[in-house]
Design a protein around this nucleic acid. Structure first.
Length: 282
DNA sequence: CAGCGCCCCTGCCCGC
DNA sequence: TGCGGGCAGGGGCGCT
């Protein structure tokens, strides 16, 4: 579900709602997420005040007085503010209760998400310390990406989806940004010219920023903290449009499997920039 | 050490 | 209508 624009949308919503509120109580109905939720989380959070809500990559960080709650939504996680009277739904795994009107409810059908606590600076946490640059920061430049691509042979799509290179670019936005930059998703990174890299940086930033301005992408079940969908889906040029005509050249869009993920592209607008890979059969 | 595959889990859609 | 297979917006980890 969530890529960077969706997490950013949720962070902004929660930051408005939960600044300086105090935890009254925590209910954990299901401990088993990607890693178990700490047993003592309720005791740890009790009576602590929310100091700041921000994010690093797709990790949502809730800073309290004595530490930070690290939340990741995985593929199917949701965070909503609900009131005490809201119906309990399947997979409502955690409630952080601030008041009768302010319950932060975590729902995650697939349980690929994460809720962990750290007393240290969250940047030092094992899940965060080796993360790459933020794509919307000034640190994400052509020189940075070229440096990272040195001695690498991976295809550009899994490369920009690698969190150690740049954070927050998932399958939807990687697919869209490569289309807008006219770069074939299977191009080996060492075949890219500086012009390609410059174009790609620009289209990644543009795509993410536009998506944030639309409140994220709702494919079927993304909703922000107020339960409202995002409207970036209407802007998708290629993602999910396999076999349909390219909006630029009207030729049917293609699908390939790259880095354990599906990728849609236009073979006319994103021509291959490399010799075909020959593979031994049997 | 780069790169690939596996795996954590449920829901949903498709074809038979 | 029921069921098995495949696929899904993520990403850490272990193996080669």
């Amino acid at each position: 579900m969530p890529e960077l624009p969706e997490v950013e949308t949720i962070v902004r919503g929660l930051a408005l709602e939960l600044q300086d509120v105090v935890v009254q109580h925590v209910i954990i109905r299901q401990h088993q997420l990607r890693w178990p939720i700490p047993d003592n989380l309720s005791a740890t959070l009790n009576q602590q005040k929310v100091c700041r809500i921000h994010r690093r990559g797709k990790y949502l960080l809730m800073r309290f007085e004595r530490g930070t709650l690290i939340i990741h939504l995985g593929m199917s996680g949701h965070l909503r503010i609900v009131s005490k009277t809201a119906d309990l739904k399947p997979h409502d795994h955690v409630d952080i209760i601030f008041s009768e009107q302010q319950i932060l409810r975590y729902n995650d059908p697939r349980r690929f998400g994460t809720i962990l606590w750290t007393q240290d600076e969250p940047e030092k946490h094992r899940l965060l310390f080796s993360l790459g640059v933020e794509p919307l920061s000034t640190a994400f430049t052509d020189q940075y990406l070229l440096q990272k691509a040195k001695k690498r042979h991976v295809a550009i799509k899994p490369f920009i989806m690698n969190n150690q290179v740049v954070v927050g670019v998932g399958n939807i936005y990687a697919t869209e940004a490569l289309f807008k930059a006219n770069i074939h998703p299977a191009t080996p990174v060492n075949h890219l010219t500086i012009e390609h890299v410059q174009r790609l940086i620009a289209t990644i930033k543009d795509t993410l920023q536009l998506a944030i301005s639309k409140g994220g992408t709702t494919l079927k079940d993304f909703f922000n903290a107020e339960g409202k969908p995002g409207y970036f889906k209407q802007q998708l040029m290629v993602y999910g449009r396999e076999g349909l005509p390219c909006f630029q050249c009207t030729k049917p869009l293609q699908k390939i499997w790259l880095g354990q993920r599906n990728s849609v592209y236009c073979k006319h607008c994103q021509p291959p920039m490399f010799a075909p890979v020959t593979r031994h059969i049997i």
